[in-house]
C-alpha cells in the first residue's frame, strides 16, 4: 500500500540542522552524511517511504525547506 504521505526537502535550502529528523514520529528522515549541497552543508532527506504527513518536520524547519504531501484518498 502506498504511504499516507511523503516530503520533498530542498537540498540547497537545507542547512542540515537535524531538527526535522528528531521531530519525525516515524523516523523516516535522515541527514545525508556522504554528500553536501553547494554551501558545503549536509542535507536532510526522506530515507524511508513511511511518512504519515503529520507536518511536524515542516513546522520545526527553521529554513522552510520542506513541502509535505498527503494521499488524497
Amino acid at each position: 500500500m502506498a504511504a499516507k504521505g511523503y516530503v520533498e526537502i530542498s537540498v540547497e535550502c537545507c542547512k542540515g540542522c537535524g531538527l526535522c529528523v528528531v521531530s519525525c514520529p516515524v523516523k523516516c528522515l535522515e541527514i545525508k552524511k556522504t554528500d553536501t549541497n553547494s554551501f558545503g552543508l549536509h542535507y536532510s532527506f526522506q530515507a524511508e517511504d513511511k511518512c504519515i504527513a503529520c507536518k511536524n518536520c515542516a513546522i520545526v524547519c527553521p529554513d522552510a525547506c520542506i513541502t509535505v504531501y498527503k494521499k488524497t484518498v
Binding site: 511523503y6 513541502t67 504531501y69
Partner: peptide, 24 residues
C-alpha cells in the same frame, strides 16, 4: 506523485531567499 496533494509548503510571504541564520 499521483494521488497526493500539498498539505504544507513554505509560506508565500517568506521571501524565497536563503536566510543568513546559523543552522537550526
Amino acid at each position: 506523485r499521483e494521488g497526493y496533494e500539498v498539505v504544507y509548503k513554505r509560506p508565500k510571504s517568506l521571501i524565497e531567499t536563503r536566510m543568513h541564520y546559523c543552522p537550526g
